[in-house]
């Protein structure tokens, strides 16, 4: 689809020309690496805390061939995706209700605003009691964390829908379900996608954080394990892996959602 009103995102996605911005980004990475190496060699900080780059690269190599990484990566991904599904669906639903009804919005939204920025990890003990020490409590943590940004951004997006479009739907006697499917959701695509993207990051944070606190599997657990063994190169290698993972996931979500938008509302 070459000439649509929503072409900008797909155009951006397909254009792979080298971009000056790309060079700046690369330069930043190189700069950080050089700085790191300089600090490591200077001996200003403990060798063990700031290991030299070759040590980290070697650890990264070992990590990437270690089946343990993939087993734990899979666990974390699985927990995060389930957390996003539960928290995201709940957030979408609550956001639509709060955004669609002035009464419910005024009654409940203050709670969302107060609870939203609260560090959810303080609820982790409760989650353990409710969902056990296994994956359940991690999923619950992630779901609980990502519920808030999704609900709030959907509620705000819902309010930004031009009222005239809703009146058109009503005048054609659309059912509440059709209103949601055919008017609210397509009209709010942007805030919903942003909410889900934000929600994914926050679900991942919630899951990783929970894994570092109490668990025997997952990437968060691996990080803490390496920390406790004081294997700093391995820990940094792991952090890099997690960083790349979240970047990749973010890009995947963007791709996925812009694809579904391009295929249009049937």
């Amino acid at each position: 689809m070459a000439s649509t009103g929503v072409l900008t995102s797909s155009e951006r996605a397909s254009g792979w020309r080298p971009d000056p911005v790309l060079w700046v980004r690369l330069a930043i990475i190189v700069g950080v690496l050089v700085l790191w190496q300089v600090v490591a060699m200077s001996g200003l900080l403990y060798q063990d805390v700031v290991p030299q780059l070759p040590a980290i690269v070697a650890a990264l190599g070992r990590l990437l061939v270690n089946p343990e990484l993939y087993r734990n990566l899979w666990v974390t991904l699985y927990e995060t995706v389930l957390a996003l599904v539960f928290g995201g669906v709940a957030g979408l639903f609550v956001g639509i209700v709060l955004g669609g009804s002035r009464f419910f919005g005024r009654a409940f939204e203050p709670y969302l605003y107060y609870l939203g920025p609260t560090p959810k990890i303080i609820f982790f003990p409760v989650m353990i009691m409710w969902f056990g020490t296994g994956g359940g409590s991690k999923i619950a943590m992630g779901a609980f964390s990502c519920f808030f940004p999704v609900a709030l951004s959907v509620a705000v997006g819902m309010r930004a829908i031009p009222p005239i479009l809703m009146r058109v739907g009503q005048s054609f006697r659309a059912s509440p379900r059709q209103m949601v499917q055919k008017i609210y959701l397509p009209a709010m695509r942007e805030p919903v996608v942003n909410g889900l993207r934000l929600g994914f990051g926050i679900a991942l944070i919630g899951v990783l954080l929970a894994e570092t606190k109490l668990s025997n599997q997952g990437l968060g657990f691996l990080v803490i394990q390496n920390y406790q063994r004081f294997d700093m190169p391995a820990m940094y290698a792991l952090l890099i892996a997690i960083f790349v993972l979240s970047m990749g996931a973010n890009a995947a979500i963007t791709r996925l959602t812009s694809r579904s938008a391009a295929s249009g509302a049937r």
Binding site: G5, V6, P162, I164, L165, R167, V168, G169, F172, R173, A174, Q178, K182, I183, P186, A187, R189, G264, A265, R266
Partner: peptide
């Protein structure tokens, strides 16, 4: 009175909307 077409639908999808409902 106001602008009321659905911006995310093509002309034919707009016109077919009540039938879809």
């Amino acid at each position: 009175q106001e602008e009321s077409t659905f911006p995310w639908r093509t002309v034919e999808e707009n016109v077919a909307f009540p039938l879809e409902i």
